[in-house]
Write a protein that binds this DNA or RNA. Sequence first.
DNA 1: GGCGGTAATATGGTATACCATCATACAATA
DNA 2: TATTGTATGATGGTATACCATATTACCGCC
Lengths: 230, 230
Amino acid sequence: MQMTQPDAALQKIEKAPQTLRDIVQDRLREAIIDGRFAPGERLVERPLCDQLGVSRTVIRETIRFLEAEGLVEIIPNRGPIVSTLTWDQARQIYDIRLLLESAAAAACAQAPHPEFATELGQALTAVGATMEDTEWANLLQATTRFYEVIFLQAGHSIAWDIVQRLNGRISRLRALTLAARNRERSGMSHMKAIHDAILSGDPDQARLAVQNHISDAANTARSFLENPDT
Amino acid sequence: MQMTQPDAALQKIEKAPQTLRDIVQDRLREAIIDGRFAPGERLVERPLCDQLGVSRTVIRETIRFLEAEGLVEIIPNRGPIVSTLTWDQARQIYDIRLLLESAAAAACAQAPHPEFATELGQALTAVGATMEDTEWANLLQATTRFYEVIFLQAGHSIAWDIVQRLNGRISRLRALTLAARNRERSGMSHMKAIHDAILSGDPDQARLAVQNHISDAANTARSFLENPDT
DNA sequence: GGCGGTAATATGGTATACCATCATACAATA
DNA sequence: TATTGTATGATGGTATACCATATTACCGCC
């Protein structure tokens, strides 16, 4: 039993004990992103407590976090509501995504890495596999994964955090645009273009492909937001 | 007493009643950004309560918010600490700022607006006025204001929120770089270049000027972070 | 004297109780 | 019947009390 030489078997205990708050935080965030609350709907604390079986303390701390994420807004002495989204805000978010995602894609294209190529290919294949899926959540997840691979390979983890947070705020739009069946295929072709451009080591082409992908999505989103239907 | 016609005198009550949490949130954030806590230092809740004269509830909800902002990190079952910053993270932050700020500056340059010109000029003058000031916080505030004018004119309010949040995370570096006396003047000249490029309606030149400003700041910051002094 | 175990302490996690405020409904009076 | 005042209820804001866990300190035993 020599301790000077670390045993590979049981290295470090890394269990990250999940607290109630973490669970509730994920649940509530998911609920909002999945659209189980309407935008502008009040999030009354006590009913949420009953529903989730936790105390108000937990709910309130969770809401503070989601407030900082931009998913909920607090009206003083009135309480939290699910954030609403104007087209102007959505436009800004798509603009920012365009900047961050094209930068990440370009960075990947400039520094090719063999195992990254297979990883990106797998991510793209996964997107294609969910294309015919009835569950749109899977497609959304696969798409997210595709970009995650790009951002992490580029070493842009902070930008990725920002993009994820922004995506949360436009989740309703993302769901709507994905539901638009005809866009699925175009989205797929755009992602293939991004994939190809990166692997061929062409940063400018990668930027362009990302731009096509996002502007396409933004246009679809705009038609939804400007036609007051949902 | 005709109510159909709104009286200009007492229009709408818009007081936004400040809650304890809001106050504490601002105070704590300011304290961290001002560097009154060392990076990695534990933020023990109960002492903070005594110090600020509020209950743990308030402190904890505040900390949740600051956690989402990236200013503090939570170690499960151990409590919050002031976030540390690696050079890699700082580099990423400067990269993102470069993207967002150059986009905003370019947008301003493309759509000139007369009253905006005077506003930007005033902001620049204010920066110059704080140049000789002994209180570095004033310089930082004036610099912030300069960029705020640009972002808001560009209609990039969300990007501005992001930049402000990122700036909070590198506040220590900003203070250090500003304290480097020799950089003040170069910072000023860079901002003047940005100002001139925008007013002359040259987006590319504006981008370039922003790039110079940020890369200069990033280089100064790197020398601090890589030399383990502070 | 070092090592292991147990007790004590520090501190975060959670629940609850109480108070403040705002909105709404109802009643009384003109 | 309309208007205004008041009472009541819903709900967020804040404080506190209690519990769980982890770290530390101390003590006895080998």
